[in-house]
Amino acid sequence: MELTTPTKLEFYDQMLKLQSKAILVHYFKGDDGRKALILDNTIFHPQGGGQPSDTGFICVTDSNLRFCVQDVRSKDGVVFHYGVAEDSSMENELEQGKGKEVILQVDESRRRLNSRPFVEYKGTVPLNELQSKQREIEIEVNALISKGGKVNATVLPYREAAELCGGSLPDYIHPGSNPRIIKLGDNPGCPCGGTHVSDVSEILSMKLQVSQIRTKKGMTKVFYTIGT
């Protein structure tokens, strides 16, 4: 099966949207036996970037058919919604449903669980300062959580995106592209394709703890856990 038209990612522009409409492009059974729907657009976030996929339902308009979305993956820009029809006897309707309108409903509780903010630290840390820097980052991030701040997602031209991110972008963002930038409160932005809470204060019940800091080839990575 070859698909050349990428799926439009509605959650890029409307991160908090949990229900939408789309057009069914294809229904098929993969080599692994799993069944999937492909739509012209989606609000379901596929697994990637360290974030688990959304789950939920896709319903055919003016029909009793409900497709339970159990996993979502993206390949070459096309999003695959894997799952099963609640009533297997109605699968024929999906097989013949190309071009039909469907209604998407994302599981809100799972989306909220997966939409926790991330941490990015730019720069290098001397080996003899790793332990003190770990504690410093914990204090800084937990203070940010307590303070709160609006979370915004915007797709911008490369130059504007770089300005919003403190003057530069990571090497994997190509000049001339239009990256999606997430901004937490008044802090510098960061390129990210995931979903997030609408305000940092929504995770007040959680606390971040840095578990490890690694520096390699001039890049520092911070590993952390979030608990209640």
Rank of each mutant, 00 (worst) to 15 (best):
L24W: 02
G193D: 15
S211K: 07
T154E: 03
P175V: 14
N187A: 03
I137S: 04
L184P: 01
E91I: 09
H45Y: 08
N152S: 10
T225Y: 12
N128V: 03
E95G: 07
G218D: 06
V151E: 07
M90G: 12
I139M: 14
L144G: 02
H196V: 12
E10G: 08
G56I: 00
K29G: 06
D171E: 08
E160F: 12
R135P: 01
V72P: 00
R214L: 15
T220S: 01
L144V: 07
R112D: 04
K21G: 05
I145H: 01
E120L: 08
V78M: 00
I38N: 09
L164Y: 04
I23C: 02
L113R: 11
D40H: 04
S88A: 14
E86D: 15
G97E: 13
R180V: 04
Y172G: 02
R135I: 14
N187T: 10
F57E: 12
L164M: 10
H26T: 14
L204S: 10
E202W: 02
R34E: 14
F11Q: 00
I23M: 12
F57A: 09
G83W: 01
M206E: 13
R159W: 06
F67D: 10
F118L: 08
R34C: 13
S132F: 05
E202D: 10
L18I: 14
E120N: 07
Y158A: 12
G148P: 09
G194R: 02
G218I: 02
E2I: 13
H26R: 07
D171V: 11
K75Y: 05
V151R: 06
S177R: 14
K133H: 12
E91Q: 06
G99R: 13
V197Q: 02
F44H: 00
E202V: 00
T225S: 15
G56Y: 06
H45L: 05
Q47T: 09
